[in-house]
Nucleic acid binder design. Structure first.
Lengths: 100, 100
DNA sequence: TAAAGTACTTTGAGATGCAAAGTTAATATA
DNA sequence: TATATTAACTTTGCATCTCAAAGTACTTTA
């Protein structure tokens, strides 16, 4: 059996980053407050995980105004979607492994 | 949508602990060296993850001698199996969530 | 007697996680 | 005009986690 750990992406070790990506896989575009409320995070904590995903080039950030209020939205990049899918595939292999 | 992060167990944030548990789900009993080689870990690193899972009461340790050599084996406890299954279910929900 | 194997524990450095507080820039309210 | 509020961070500082490498205790093999 090959090392099953290599199938998994270190960037998704965190439950929070996994949650963010899962949301961005099904919701093309999501804003800061939606993530914050859904995942029940403090501003700082969310911002830091977003920044980690951004640096990995897994999500893309857009800033705009809605009416008079600033609004920041996030979107998974093709690279991020690809990486997330691979991670999920890796998990599935890990679980289904009839290893021996 | 409820908070999807709550479906996941913090003890399984680590790829290594996930790998150990996955192996113990399909191999009733496994020893130190098998885990070490399969997961390509140093002794110390493996020992520390094992100890974390043991403290969570997710695995059980048995020490015996095979011939003249010490041999330590590990087994998932019912509690550990349950927790792992829940975690996997949580991941599945996270992924399949048609959230909105 | 020396080297090697088993299964650790310890050490120490670095990375990560987190809440809370501070920040910036804009708007809303008194 | 002064104050408050909102959005989205950034900074701080502490705690925890992760890891490799080295050390340990015991035994076996050369």
């Amino acid at each position: 059996m090959p090392n099953p750990i290599l199938l998994l992406n270190k960037a998704f070790d965190s439950r929070i980053r996994l949650g963010i990506m899962a949301i961005l896989m099904t919701n093309e575009r999501t804003d800061f407050n939606y993530l914050k409320e859904t995942l029940e995070l403090t501003d700082g904590n969310l911002a830091s995980h977003i920044s980690a995903l951004e640096q990995a080039n897994f999500i893309e950030v857009s800033k705009q105004f809605i009416g008079k209020k600033p609004n920041t939205t996030y979107k998974a990049t093709p690279e991020g979607k690809e990486a997330f899918k691979k991670h999920i595939d890796g998990l599935e292999q890990l679980i289904r492994t009839d290893n021996l």
